[in-house]
Nucleic acid binder design. Structure first.
Ligand SMILES: [Zn+2]
Ligand SMILES: [Zn+2]
Ligand SMILES: [Zn+2]
Ligand SMILES: [Zn+2]
Lengths: 172, 172
DNA sequence: CGAAAAACGTTATATCATAACAATTGGATT
DNA sequence: AATCCAATTGTTATGATATAACGTTTTTCG
């Protein structure tokens, strides 16, 4: 018998996903959260926007705009750069995805309930991304900025390194 | 009589420059530090590289590669994108400048003595950048990553907001 | 319905960055 | 000084990311 897939993806609360997690559930949850959020705010999650969101959630890796475009073209003739960039802009504005500045790429947000700048751990090897929401980090930065009279509006925090799984594989 | 310009630019130790600071001194110091660093490490600060470094230090604002290229062309016929990107790569590798990922732009490093990932405050209004070197911030991040088994290799920290000077101007 | 707004289609172009290879230069070694 | 090698620069082309502009279609709502 196969080992049961992890049914409640707790890693969304700040860790890298287990190798065998039920990723279909990640996508479903993300779409469900998006539907709920858009319903609540009176925003329109159109077919294209939903599809781009699903494609961003294809994995826990960041995805480039033109990679999304290629995939979109497979099923949507006439897709062009503005098609995907408009969808990305919408999803960013909603807080459904984040942009990773250091990679020019996009990643789904697992906690889109309130708008926030993300804190990201990015593995150099497997390319997976984990989003943190560590108040200690953001407060440390905020207080340091405060002392200089600087009013923080948005924090871009992207930490590159090696995730636990990849470190184990390397030594093995 | 004119007020004396600030002769020792202490703001290089983590703050925004005073409005009337002697910026010529900033440039001279940066070039002197670069000469020293390259001499110490046996690297060649060629004419182009030095000139690009000076141009990055034209102010405390981040500067784009093609803006540098335009300026370089004024005095160096035959300058092309690779010319400036090669110089930038050299200066980045030496730690003489930093790249601001969220702006696709470059800024001089005031403390190039040891290689480091910078922490930047970026003012939305005046576009000036201040580089912090706050160990509390980097250690907070490192310890949080450690707990997840993540080995930090590089931190990208870019804080967007309003600097003290601009906040004063706005309320006035 | 009919007007207005939002979303989308389409074409062109802006902006940022690198590949590839030839020519030149700088500096060490005879 | 002549030679050689490696580093740097010149040159051309192209790749990768993103937006402008404007017309058409779809949705919303009175
Ligand atoms: Zn998943
Ligand atoms: Zn998020
Ligand atoms: Zn990994
Ligand atoms: Zn300012």
């Amino acid at each position: 018998m196969m080992p049961a897939k992890q049914s409640s993806p707790d890693f969304k609360k700040s860790q890298f996903p287990a190798k065998n997690h039920d990723h279909g559930r990640c996508i479903d949850d993300a779409v469900a959260a998006a539907e709920a959020l858009c319903a609540r705010k009176g925003l329109r999650l159109t077919k294209i926007r939903r599809r781009v969101l699903e494609m961003v959630w294809q994995g826990h890796n960041p995805v480039g705009a033109y990679e999304l475009l290629d995939r979109l073209r497979d099923e949507h003739k006439g897709a062009a750069p503005p098609t995907v960039y408009r969808a990305l802009e919408f999803l960013l504005d909603c807080g459904l995805i984040h942009r990773i500045e250091s990679l020019n790429a996009y990643v789904g947000c697992g906690t889109p309930d309130h708008l926030h700048s993300g804190q990201f751990l990015i593995c150099r090897h497997c390319k997976r991304i984990a989003e943190l929401s560590d108040d200690t980090i953001s407060e440390t930065i905020r207080s340091r900025a405060d002392r200089l009279g600087f009013a923080v509006q948005r924090q871009t925090i992207e930490i590159l390194g090696d995730c636990a799984d990849c470190r184990r594989s390397q030594t093995a």
